[in-house]
């Protein structure tokens, strides 16, 4: 009976879901941390450094995620750098996301009026303090819509870790398909539903956060 096999396979889908969430969490963490550093660097660091960051962003935004996975997982071992599939996937997701996130933060920084940093200087703050206490808090708020967007993109992109053999939701789905070919459509529809609910919930929560931290008079628009 197909239903029984489906129920039997639910625990393995749950395992897959955990890995998917793990990839998302660590990927976004790496992407956000690095993205903020990159954006701040591009706006406030010396010219050569800012230029290097620009190149990093362009390159990482110009390569498909799957190719980036292959480079890290299959390519790097050739020069002695070995990662397991899970680490490679987190690295790939995080690095690529950092390039997109840097762009979001930079856009936010650029939309903060110059007078803000002048006002901070006039109080006697140095550059670092001005960035930390005046620019950062505004930048982060302005970036929430873009960050939400990026979060759901990354969540969906974790499915590509399938390509380097990470046993996340998609791979679990394939295992079930191999065990019981009749279930294939149901299983992938179920996985689609799981992703949909994750994206839906994430959007709801993030929209709430966005509203809560909105600065009066500032509005931003998200892009894909």
């Amino acid at each position: 009976m197909a239903l029984e096999t489906l129920i039997e396979s639910l625990p393995s889908l749950f395992d897959g879901l955990l890995i998917t969430l793990l990839l998302t969490a660590f990927g976004i963490l790496l992407g956000t941390t690095l993205g903020i550093v990159l954006a701040t660097g591009r706006s406030y660091a010396s010219r050569p450094l800012a230029y290097l960051i620009l190149i990093y962003e362009k390159v990482l935004r110009g390569i498909p995620l799957l190719v980036l996975f292959f480079l890290i997982y299959f390519g790097l071992p050739q020069i002695g750098i070995n990662f397991n599939a899970l680490t490679a996937a987190v690295l790939g997701l995080g690095l690529r996301s950092s390039a997109y996130q840097a762009q979001i933060y930079r856009g936010a920084i650029n939309s903060i009026p110059e007078g803000q940093i002048h006002a901070a200087y006039s109080l006697g703050m140095n550059k670092l303090k001005a960035i930390r206490h005046v620019i950062m808090p505004q930048m982060l708020r302005l970036s929430i819509p873009g960050w939400s967007n990026e979060f759901t993109i990354l969540l969906k992109d974790t499915s590509l870790a399938f390509g380097i053999g990470v046993i996340e939701l998609m791979r679990q789905g394939r295992y079930i398909q191999v065990r019981d070919p009749d279930l294939v459509l149901v299983v992938f529809l179920l996985i689609a539903l799981i992703f949909f609910l994750l994206v839906f919930t994430a959007n709801k929560i993030l929209r709430y956060v966005e509203k809560k931290y909105q600065m009066a008079g500032y509005q931003t628009e998200a892009h894909r």
């Binding site: 969906k156 974790t158 499915s159 590509l160 998609m170 789905g173 689609a192 992703f195 949909f196 839906f200």
Partner: peptide
């Protein structure tokens, strides 16, 4: 709301 890969599968 769903990944492209799921749609392809």
């Amino acid at each position: 709301g769903t990944p492209l890969l799921v749609q392809l599968f």
